[in-house]
Design a protein around this nucleic acid. Structure first.
Lengths: 149, 149
DNA sequence: ACTAAACTCTATCGGCTTAGTAGAGTAATA
DNA sequence: TATTACTCTACTAAGCCGATAGAGTTTAGT
């Protein structure tokens, strides 16, 4: 299960991507209303995405957020890792935060690990192969990407 | 991330599968020692698996556990659903416990949902397509080997 | 029948995470 | 300088996770 927070983050980015190009910003409260996200919670999420260089903000009157990276360079995987942490289903399969399973005798011969490695690969293939832009360009675009992934 | 409990369950089933055929049982404490699982915790897990018809037990002296289902009919997916619940990454993608996302305007056009539907499909393909039997028998599973390399 | 071994079941607990709220602070603009 | 809007830190209620405790029940063997 992905967290509510990650879902909000992705939806907010899709909303920002829709207005990308014309370089005006969107208010947190606009996005919150439009996407039904608690405003104060969204503040934290966008701030987090800003710290990771995904979006930029302008403060004060006429402030707001906009994308920093182009929508076609922001992958679902990147966002998931920022918000929810490692994608891997086991710590011993994580690239960004590897940790050995203490209760497992030998990693190389761990049956559970071997199976979930395949899950991890499949998951990463989808998440790292899909960008925010893929969601707004319609289904055709997405399929094209899927086939080349 | 899969839970510790699910990892224990799968490892215990692999252990039971190794002794399957000769119809003597294994003690909880044997499995616990061999697999480094806290005994009392494993008790709960095996009991749960018993309630779901995966294993059977004999009580009293010379008691223990053994598989009820044949190892090649027990899929990882089945075990995961028993122990950890739905496999789907979003409630609105679950087959066994569908729930609408309350904050999402229209399910059909939800971009996040569309992407994670692909993750769910890929995950289910692996988990429902791999059995406990696939993990034992040594080098038997060439597929898994190839994909994890 | 008695006893020891082993599973059964319910309850409980500390620690952590999740989802969200609160509020004071800072920057930009009119 | 007033207002608007983002920034940052702290806090909290609820729930989950991993594990432990202990009383109860069943069975084998003597």
């Amino acid at each position: 299960m992905i967290s509510q927070k990650a879902k909000y983050a992705l939806r907010a980015l899709v909303a920002l991507a829709r207005a990308h190009g014309n370089d005006d910003t969107q208010l947190i409260s606009e996005i919150a209303d439009q996407q039904r996200i608690p405003k104060k919670f969204l503040e934290q999420i966008l701030l987090d995405l800003k710290h990771h260089g995904i979006v930029v903000s302008r403060r004060g009157k006429a402030g707001g957020y906009m994308l920093l990276k182009s929508p076609d360079t922001i992958t679902f995987g990147e966002v998931m890792r920022i918000i929810d942490g490692p994608i891997a289903p086991l710590p011993c399969l994580s690239r960004m935060a590897y940790r050995r399973c203490e209760d497992c005798r030998e990693e190389k011969s761990c049956e559970v690990r071997r199976v979930f490695a395949r899950v991890a690969t499949a998951t990463r293939e989808v998440l790292d192969g899909t960008t925010i832009a893929d969601c707004i360009g319609g289904v055709a675009n997405e399929d094209a990407r899927a086939l080349t992934a």
